[in-house]
């Protein structure tokens, strides 16, 4: 494992890209890692392209600059792939995980991606089946673990469950639905042959 793993999340304002980075950061912390989780702060408008970031390391993290060469990129909205350069700074051996109904091969052709590892998951469909609303951020956590194995899946689930339970104290059913969405995404994430 590299000294520091860097992750970039692309989403649209309101999709929970920031929350995903925070949930994932906290889950990594719970497994004993040093972490950073931070959003990009621009003018925040619902629907506008936004980014958030994670750093993970086994050692204390001292660096405080922005992330320009992430090891992993997650895209929470399929329409972003043609709007934003989601591949920017992603090295040849980097991983990109996209919320889309398309297959990794289709995405690779569509974007003309050379190298890199491409994964896809239909996070909207999963969210509609479980949460009942097209909220892609929690399913993408499941896809992230499936694609990279960066954290222990069960431990991540446990941490996210605890965090969501604090947030939705009066609505426990929301917690269960999100956990179900993460599990489904973990099962349904597609890589390349």
């Amino acid at each position: 494992m590299k000294d520091i793993i860097e992750i970039r999340w692309h989403g649209r304002g309101g999709q929970g890209a920031k929350t995903a980075a925070l949930l994932f950061g906290e889950a990594a912390l719970d497994t004993g890692m040093y972490i950073q989780a931070f959003p990009e702060y621009g003018p925040e408008r619902t629907g506008a392209p936004v980014q958030s970031f994670n750093r993970l390391s086994k050692k204390p993290i001292r660096i405080h600059s922005g992330i320009t060469n992430p090891d992993i990129v997650l895209v929470l909205d399929p329409t972003l792939v043609k709007k934003v350069n989601v591949l920017e700074g992603l090295p040849e051996d980097g991983v990109i995980i996209i919320n889309t109904s398309k297959s990794p091969q289709e995405i690779r052709e569509e974007l003309g991606i050379q190298g890199r590892k491409v994964f896809t998951v239909d996070a909207y469909d999963i969210a509609m089946r479980t949460i009942g609303r097209p909220i892609p951020n929690t399913p993408m956590l499941g896809a992230l673990i499936k694609a990279t194995g960066i954290l222990d899946f069960e431990k991540m689930l446990e941490s996210v469950r605890a965090k969501l339970q604090r947030k939705f104290r009066t609505r426990p059913e929301i917690v269960d639905k999100n956990i179900e969405a993460i599990k489904l995404a973990y099962q349904e994430t597609k890589g390349e042959e």
Binding site: I35, Q36, A37, F38, Y41, P60, I61
Partner: peptide, 12 residues
């Protein structure tokens, strides 16, 4: 503490 860089970045 530095605005946003620290104020809004989660760390251990």
């Amino acid at each position: 503490a530095d605005g946003f860089i620290l104020s809004h970045a989660m760390q251990r």
